[in-house]
Nucleic acid binder design. Structure first.
Length: 774
DNA sequence: GCGAGCCTCCC
DNA sequence: CATGGGAGGCTCGCA
């Protein structure tokens, strides 16, 4: 099938699959391009992707009568970035092939296939996955975009979505109706109907959706433009903001439960306007219960996947909604509210029929999301004069260091040599010290330094490598120092400064639906990765007249390991409140262990719960593999039940059954690959998950108990709770006692165990200067 | 302007 | 090949 087009194609030299014999088929499957296996066998989809594709087709109920081809006949030079030119050149051939098959459905796998089939580069598989669209060449044929199986093999969490795509395709093939969200109608509230509509909404039962449109994505700055209430499929009532008293009365008196999508934002905005809104339900959390694998639970994506909604948000800028004409704004709001309610009616029955998910949703996620909104709203006080001073210092130090690069190290940069010796397409006149590519050229090509350690990234310039070659050139330590300071300035000084509110407080967004294990995530800014360096932590302070308390669960994950494995050695250790690092060191090295050995064991104690290997330990401490292996073997010989537990997790993974924790968390591995990464994840899941839930549950429980003592929770970091409390001796003592007791009791209550969970409390006026309190 | 890749910070 | 879970800043190539 070589034609004139091929002569112009950049991939013409790479080898191709020859023309296939076409045959009539109702289903045509279009992939991307051949890989090595495909080229060898001269057939599309014969490798790992092909195996997964065939298995999934079978699982979805498709028999063997489909025709498989690719958007490209040749192997691309760079699979991650396929040339648009090549797609267009190969397209006429694909169209011809499809025509000969005369299919009813085309399954387009991945972006390259979709681009070719639909003759456009604007469709992305992640947003239109599983949404049927008419074929660009013949609208009587339906195209269904689905992930490329290679994507699923790289990220097995996508398997659920992938399988759902095929299942839906099969339903359509069998003649089922397309999903249809219906036509959303809205009633605009005005002077004449406000009274009546409000009364109607207040008496409506049992559930209604609520969504608001605002002028900003920051709840503190956002002005509400309009509020919509969805009461039944396709029917939404919209209040413009002139009706605030009516709106208020709905939130105060309504009998229905209110469902939001990403309730933190809407309820925070309403709270800022003096409306006491709390989330009864949240579709983002419901979907998270049903699928912890997808990181994105965006309303638009869910509405498209589950309701068959079109791309109704196209061209709408969420941060600039006041620029939108009113009719467009209302239509958009109405759809958001309508789809939220429709999704709720779809997801909620699914969640409550599973006792674990039901418990997780009602007892943790819903109380949790309202709690986290309040933690965020409390905010963490920043020492602004100190921040300004710190910033100035760092800026001048960085400038000095850049000048040294420009003068003393100028000879290390040769633009032309760099361009000719690397694949770089462009390069600056002066060296950019922040560019890993340029740095790699200097280290590996110009200076020809050979690091003695291995890294996953080729020609890496990361800390490990730089420290390894620190003495090879005086330029290297300079880079290390620069990187450190630059990180400090950009991420922790400027990144924080940008986000301080008018009242000198920093408010992070805590997400409850991001991680697969149930840990929280924190963003804008991330308050969970503030450097331990006290110089940075001292940016965070207690307000005047207040004190900071920080309560940490000590060795939380090891204690959870003791719980899940019921290991007698570990349980006994915690029961007797002994120092786990010393006890373990004594078991491994005998009673006369050195401080260095204790440090090594301490590190192993933490790594064990992540599935750490002898290799990584030997790298960290520069010991032999044999020595590292000995430590691990002895560790597991001592805590043999822990070993059994971790091995059991791998067995459980093999069984393809979900992992479930006592708090109702569920980890489903749709595609079980049994690779190292997945096995380690399986070992770690319950430990990390239970540990983070214990902290969250303790914090939720504490919130109302410490409130009478003028104390508020202002941050959470995985196993620690940061509290601000009025600086009054009696009140501080009372709060500390409560914290200590609750953190001890929550595991007893939730895990039904007598394993001794213990908190450690520190106090201070500044986060970088906290002293342990006995 | 966007996304991938790299790097660095946390538990 | 070789420890799990995150956020975010920067560069660079592409559109």
């Amino acid at each position: 099938m070589i034609n004139n087009q091929c002569n112009q194609c950049p991939y013409n030299i790479c080898g191709r699959i020859p023309a296939q014999i076409t045959f009539k088929s109702d289903i045509v499957i279009v992939g991307m391009a051949p890989g090595n296996d495909e080229l060898k066998q001269k057939k599309p989809f014969v490798g790992r992707s092909g195996k997964l594709l065939r298995e999934t087709l079978l699982k979805a109920g498709f028999d063997q009568t489909y025709y498989i081809t690719n958007a490209l006949l040749c192997k691309p030079l760079n699979e991650k970035n396929v040339s648009r030119e090549a797609i267009q050149l190969c397209r006429p051939r694909l169209i011809e092939e499809i025509k000969k098959c005369s299919p009813k459905f085309i399954l387009a796998l991945g972006n390259t296939a979709i681009s070719s089939v639909q003759n456009t580069f604007s469709l992305k598989v992640t947003s239109i996955h599983g949404t049927p669209i008419p074929y660009s060449e013949d609208s009587s044929i339906t195209v269904i975009p689905i992930f490329h199986p290679a994507k699923v093999l790289r990220n097995y969490g996508d398997y659920h979505t992938f399988l759902n795509g095929f299942l839906y395709a099969k339903q359509l093939y069998d003649g089922c109706q397309k999903k249809d969200p219906g036509v959303t109608q809205y009633v605009l509230v005005n002077e004449s109907n406000a009274e009546q509509v409000t009364k109607f909404l207040i008496n409506h039962e049992p559930v209604m959706s609520c969504d608001i449109e605002t002028t900003s994505l920051n709840p503190k700055k956002a002005e509400i433009l309009c509020i919509g209430f969805g009461i039944t499929k396709n029917l939404v009532y919209i209040y413009p903001m002139d009706f605030l008293p009516y709106i208020k009365s709905i939130f105060e008196d309504c009998r229905a439960k209110i469902v939001y999508h990403r309730s933190q934002f809407d309820t925070a905005v309403l709270q800022a306007k003096g409306i006491n809104a709390n989330a009864d339900h949240d579709t983002i959390l419901l979907h998270y219960c049903l699928d912890e694998n997808v990181g994105n639970h965006d309303l638009k994506t869910l509405a498209s996947h589950f309701l068959g909604a079109d791309n109704y948000a196209e061209g709408i800028d969420k941060s600039n909604m006041d620029k939108l004409p009113k009719d467009k704004l209302y239509e958009y709001l109405a759809k958001d509210a309508d789809y939220t309610l429709q999704l709720f009616n779809l997801f909620y029955p699914e969640v409550i029929k599973d006792p674990n998910l039901n418990k997780l949703y009602h007892q943790i996620l819903i109380p949790g999301i309202n709690f986290l909104r309040r933690v965020s709203s409390n905010g963490f006080m920043i020492n602004i004069p100190y921040l300004k001073k710190f910033k100035k210092e760092l800026k001048s130090e960085l400038k000095q260091m850049e000048e040294i690069i420009a003068t003393d190290f100028a000879h290390l940069w040769n633009r032309d040599m760099y361009l000719s010796q690397t694949k770089a397409k462009s390069a600056p006149q002066k060296l950019n010290i922040r560019s890993p590519q340029q740095l790699a050229w200097i280290i590996y090509d110009l200076l020809k330094i050979k690091p003695t350690i291995y890294t996953e990234v080729k020609r890496s310039t990361n800390v490990e490598i730089l420290e390894n070659i620190e003495h090879s050139h005086k330029f290297i330590p300079h880079i290390l120092k620069y990187r450190k300071k630059h990180k400090l300035l950009t991420t922790y000084i400027e990144g924080i400064e940008d986000k301080i509110d008018k009242d000198e407080r920093l408010r992070s967004t805590y997400n409850l639906q991001v991680t697969v294990t149930g840990r929280l995530s924190s963003e804008s800014p991330n308050l969970q990765n503030i450097p331990r360096d006290s110089k940075v932590k001292n940016l965070f302070k207690a307000p005047k007249g207040y004190l900071l308390l920080e309560a940490d669960y000590s060795q939380l994950e090891v204690r959870v390991l003791a719980y899940v494995s019921q290991d007698p050695f570990l349980i006994d250790l915690f029961e007797q409140d002994k120092d786990i690092h010393s006890e373990m060191a004594a078991k491994i090295f005998g009673p006369n262990f050195t401080d260095k050995q204790r440090t090594e064991v301490k590190s192993v104690n933490f790594r064990i719960v992540y599935g750490g290997t002898a290799f990584s330990i030997s790298q960290e401490f520069g010991m032999s593999l044999r020595e590292a292996q000995m430590i691990i073997d002895e560790w597991f010989r001592t805590a043999f039940k822990a070993k059994e537990y971790l091995d059991g997790c791998v067995e459980h993974l093999k069984s393809k059954q979900p992992f479930i924790t006592p708090t109702g968390r569920c980890r489903r591995y749709g595609l079980v690959t049994m690779d190292t990464n997945q096995c380690n994840e399986a070992k770690n899941f319950a430990i990390q998950s239970i540990a983070s839930d214990l902290t969250l549950l303790s914090a939720i429980e504490l919130e109302s108990l410490i409130e009478p003592y003028n104390a508020k929770i202002i941050n959470l970091v995985h196993d620690s709770i940061v509290i601000q409390v009025i600086n009054d001796k009696n009140k501080v003592e009372k709060v500390m006692e409560l914290v200590y007791n609750i953190m001890h009791e929550i595991p007893i209550k939730w895990l039904d165990t007598d394993i001794n969970f213990k908190a450690e409390i520190k106090a201070g006026f500044s986060w970088g200067d906290m002293k342990k309190i006995e």
